[in-house]
Design a protein around this nucleic acid. Structure first.
Lengths: 340, 340
DNA sequence: CTACTGTTTTGCAGCGCTGCAAAACACAGC
DNA sequence: GCTGTGTTTTGCAGCGCTGCAAAACAGTAG
């Protein structure tokens, strides 16, 4: 295996110091056109490509950011991942992926042990089982941006949509259609379920605003936001004497699972039960019927997250932790209004 | 920002040389129990964690492998990604993701410019637009494992299921059900469509084996294997005077798109048109109706790919390029046989 | 006590790059 | 020609680790 071309090799060929080659390669100012050209020619001739590792070691940074998500096969996260990678690449950063499987211990270790010594310069984190305590215990030197769940305590940035408002809007949509018994699937009434609880709050507010009672027995909690959980919860609801005629699902996957159950019992969506989801994943656009949903601006969430993280990384004194709101909108499809 | 603890700090505290600390940390042989314990204590006390970057620079490797896929939001790839990450982590490797968007130029650059100088030690590649030429032009020093599309020329490993056999099996299933006019969606009759063409071959073989004519006009090609393409192709087919009563789709996404179209025209699956997919993604299990599919053993594909790649990386002389077959099976669901 | 063998520990160079500060150069003004 | 100012180039140390080979040590045999 032949040795790779180094800065020094180029320097020798161009007849300058290796430091000058470095200056040219990195586009630093104060290099005369003449030397620049000479060096460039040498670079091209030898096919020099900088050794990223050495550069990073010398600079004390890794040029990589980590994206930590609970599940990669969840469309919402893979769509987000895609945008994060693009945004990071634009700034010359690579993205390392870590999947936690929602394991709280794993999540904790990740932010506590910090940057694993230069494997990454910062983390974009979408936690699931992380409580406030774990966040407080974290490595304070690690630049951190959090998506979704927890709100910022001022030492990191948090980006998400306004869950309460969005959920209220979703519920309003169902009530506007004249539905009488609106259920909710996805509540998580425990410490790590902040985001879910915000959705439940929106669900309640929508009822209160029109003076309607909230049927507490129609609020079903689920451990995860996936299809099987949605399917099971829906089965539960349909077994009631007085089954719902509409469901607000806390994710599109839950909605797809719910629809699966409804249809397999010979009922119709939306005639018998109207279904609304959350996340606007591609699956929901092509399912049968297509799913009405709350669509968060994922592209904006991703780019903002990367932007804030890079800012954090490059700042000498950490900037204040911001609480950022990404826009969302209601997308109405057949699962609530039928064949238009 | 305070300096991180280094090997030397530990060495000083333990009263040994830094090299000895390195030996302990890396579990090298020939360290007496006494020193091992002493060093370990110092490591724990200072909370030392090795600097991965420095280690890699010294060792001339990066400890990272790259996974290059066309699209990350395609469930098949995100499910695969998940398994690859797990397998790599088990061996202490990190995974860098790259999404090519199926852009041939991007794909070419990736394997031609090689390891981008130590950013990664090897690549698991699922190409889309890569022709044999590009493969030949690649950096020969870069350990490479290819998934799916192209067959091995002996300089890299290739892993995939037996597409011809699987496709034949899928088509057989439709014919066994007594379907008369079986269509195929997903052919790609051009240089970069090897995998698609193998599926078409299986489709043909199934017909030939029973002496049935292949209706060439029912073989529709699509640029991608996604929902929109499937939906559009199906619309095309249904516009025929003599529409098909069964479709073999070259991916589950295509199948889901096709079902979407069929249903939105008021037809029923499988009564009017039976649909079979390929890949066995989760969406297909919960769709309405659930999709019959060819299920490749993804876990095995991922672990084998990682295993072979790491072997390649650690070998002084490159091992011969293997052509590996992962098992697959037909999973029958409602989209072909209806409600049991 | 010396020589020899095998084990454990050490010292140093170097991976390829950049930060820093000094050196060299260029040019203007006196 | 000399001084001063600003620009361009250089040299060296060092990022934190490991490879290598030598040094120190231990144990055994003669």
């Amino acid at each position: 295996m032949r040795r790779e071309v180094t800065l020094r090799d180029v320097a020798e060929l161009a007849g300058v110091s290796s430091r000058t080659v470095s200056n040219v390669v990195n586009g630093y100012a104060n290099v005369t056109e003449r030397t620049r050209i000479r060096v460039q020619r040498a670079v091209d001739e030898l096919g020099y490509r900088p050794n990223v590792l050495a550069r990073n070691l010398a600079q004390g940074r890794s040029g990589q950011i980590a994206l930590v998500v609970p599940y990669l096969d969840t469309p919402y996260f893979s769509e987000l991942l895609q945008s994060v990678i693009r945004a990071a690449r634009k700034s010359g950063y690579n993205v390392l992926i870590d999947q936690t499987d929602g394991d709280a211990e794993h999540e904790r270790g990740f932010i506590a042990h910090g940057s694993r010594r230069l494997l990454f310069d910062g983390v974009i984190f979408s936690p699931l089982g992380l409580d406030q305590q774990a966040l407080a215990d974290r490595d304070p030197a690690l630049p951190l941006v959090i998506l979704g769940e927890r709100t910022s305590d001022g030492t990191f940035d948090h980006i998400g949509i306004d869950d309460v408002a969005a959920s209220r809007q979703a519920t309003d949509h169902l009530l506007d259609l004249g539905r009488q018994r609106v259920a909710a699937i996805g509540d998580q009434p425990y410490a790590t379920g902040e985001a879910a609880q915000r959705r439940t709050r929106g669900f309640r507010e929508a009822h209160h605003a029109r003076g309607l009672p909230v049927r507490e027995d129609l609020i079903i909690s689920t451990p995860r936001f996936n299809r099987p959980d949605g399917a099971q919860a829906m089965a539960h609801l349909l077994d009631r004497e007085d089954p719902p005629d509409a469901v607000f699902c806390y994710s599109d996957l839950v909605a797809l699972g719910a629809i699966h159950t409804i249809v397999s019992r010979g009922l119709r969506v939306p005639e018998d039960v109207a279904v609304i989801g959350y996340d606007d994943i591609e699956d929901g656009r092509f399912s049968n019927p297509p799913v009405t949903t709350i669509s968060p601006d994922k592209e904006m969430i991703a780019t903002t997250a990367v932007e804030r993280l890079l800012l954090r990384i490059s700042s000498a004194t950490p900037p204040p932790g911001l609480e950022l709101r990404a826009p969302h909108r209601l997308i109405v499809r057949e699962s609530t209004i039928g064949r238009g």
